[in-house]
Simulated scan of single mutants.
Amino acid sequence: MPSESTALPRWVYDFALLRDRTVNREESNQLHSIAGDGSDYEVACRWPAASHLAALLGDPDLTSHRGTSRITFLGAPDAAVATELVAKGWQETESQVLLAAMAGDVEQLVSLPETSTLFEAPMDDYDVVEVTDFDAPAGRGRIRFSDTFALLADPSILVDSHVEVFRTAIVANLAAAAARQGLPLLFMVTDADPTTGTHAKRAPGWSNATRLTTFTRA
């Protein structure tokens, strides 16, 4: 069933910027954004009542985009709405979950192999952490600081060796950066089991918070 409150939490806006998206319309219950290369248009919102789905799908900004259209719903899926979306040509393409943790409960210091180095760099909308191994890129992470929380990007690991070490080190560095900013609450969006909508293999301190389900139509 749809959530009683349709208002979006602030991290939805930050999640768009963390993915290099341009926010072109922000309302209390919807966030519209375009991919950096213009390839897709996304609407983020909570699951609507079935009676409100037609209005969402008929949004002129969504229908006028010539590339791929995406709708990302927050919260527990509504089976009736999902069925109607599929009947109208939309496909479920992504299942994610927002993880939450207190910065003090997350490991903030991890040793890297002697051949590895970690770099930090501030960008316009977020800060970047990169790990190299033998001077070649091995993994990257991002973090965006808000007033009361920090939103982390799920690290991207580019090599086949030391995968968990690099991933843990990146998250630890980002958590430490949030703690230095005085932000006690951490969020991170990561892949979820499409059946349960949860991420089972979580590091200590993290818990499942909000489910995200994305439907796409070319």
Rank of each mutant, 00 (worst) to 15 (best):
S28A: 14
P155W: 01
D127A: 09
T210E: 05
S33Y: 05
R142W: 01
P2V: 01
G139Y: 02
V81E: 01
H162S: 13
F145W: 04
R46F: 14
E42D: 07
A203L: 12
V110E: 09
V110T: 13
S5D: 14
L31N: 11
F187Y: 15
R21Y: 11
E4I: 15
I170L: 13
Y13H: 11
L151A: 05
F149H: 09
G197Y: 01
T210H: 10
A54R: 12
K88Q: 10
S207P: 10
A136I: 15
E120K: 07
K88Y: 03
S3K: 14
V43N: 01
L99D: 00
S3Q: 15
E26D: 09
D133C: 15
L185M: 05
R211N: 08
A44Q: 15
T132Q: 03
S64G: 01
G75S: 02
D14K: 12
G139E: 01
F149W: 10
A192T: 03
A138R: 08
L112R: 03
S64R: 13
L186F: 09
D127T: 09
A7M: 08
F215C: 10
A50H: 06
V129E: 01
A177W: 02
T214I: 06
D191V: 05
D37W: 06
F149G: 03
A176W: 05
E26G: 06
F145E: 06
L74G: 00
A209R: 12
L31D: 01
H52Y: 05
V163T: 14
A54I: 08
E26I: 06
E4Q: 11
V129K: 09
A35G: 13
R21P: 00
H162P: 11
A101M: 06
Y41T: 00
E107S: 11
P155Y: 03
V129P: 07
T115D: 09
L158S: 15
D160S: 10
F73C: 11
